[in-house]
């Protein structure tokens, strides 16, 4: 098996990369694209730290073969902020003290963002459900749930275009 070229957009930027067979998206993002904000906490789909959006769907990038990203639109934590302005979720994670060591944070925010993108006013149960694949060992989850609900409230107050 030989390496092959794969192209996708990463946070709005076109990428064309030479990829070895079997390489996982998490490693390609981190090592070849320098998108180090996507963390690898287990490499086996158990922790959610590597969550990114592939065509707007949250996925565990440690379980995605990089070659399958061909033609896809990939969003990582580096693309969550716009024009250096933090996304409401990021602001809320700071305000609600929803990050401690920070290692789970990018994955949590990407999982939560996928929820808010499709359900801008979620109930607590929906937030819990959306975060259920993400492990946090520091915060006890409560501040994270509070941050997601606070971000939803923040977004609801913004004019639609800004959101």
């Amino acid at each position: 098996m030989r390496s092959s070229f794969v192209s996708f957009t990463l946070n709005g930027e076109e990428k064309e990369l030479l990829i070895a067979p079997g390489q996982r998206l998490v490693d390609v993002l981190r090592e070849q694209c320098g998108a180090m904000g996507t963390r690898n906490g287990c490499g086996q789909g158990g922790c959610g730290a590597c969550t990114v959006h592939v065509d707007a769907v949250p996925m565990l990038s440690c379980l995605v073969l990089a070659e399958l990203a061909e033609g896809c639109d990939i969003l990582t934590i580096e693309g969550a902020a716009r024009d250096r302005t933090l996304h409401a979720l990021q602001e809320a994670f700071v305000a609600e003290a929803a990050t401690q060591c920070g290692f789970c944070t990018a994955g949590m925010i990407m999982a939560a963002k996928a929820l808010l993108d499709r359900d801008p006013a979620p109930q607590r149960e929906a937030v819990v459900e959306a975060l259920s694949g993400n492990v946090c060992r520091c915060t006890g989850y409560e501040p994270i749930i509070a941050a997601v609900l606070a971000a939803a409230a923040m977004l609801a107050r913004l004019p639609a275009a800004a959101a």
Partner: peptide, 12 residues
């Protein structure tokens, strides 16, 4: 050996 088997309370 992984987070599926090592039990901890989740957000629910």
């Amino acid at each position: 050996v992984d987070f599926a088997e090592y039990l901890m309370p989740g957000p629910a």
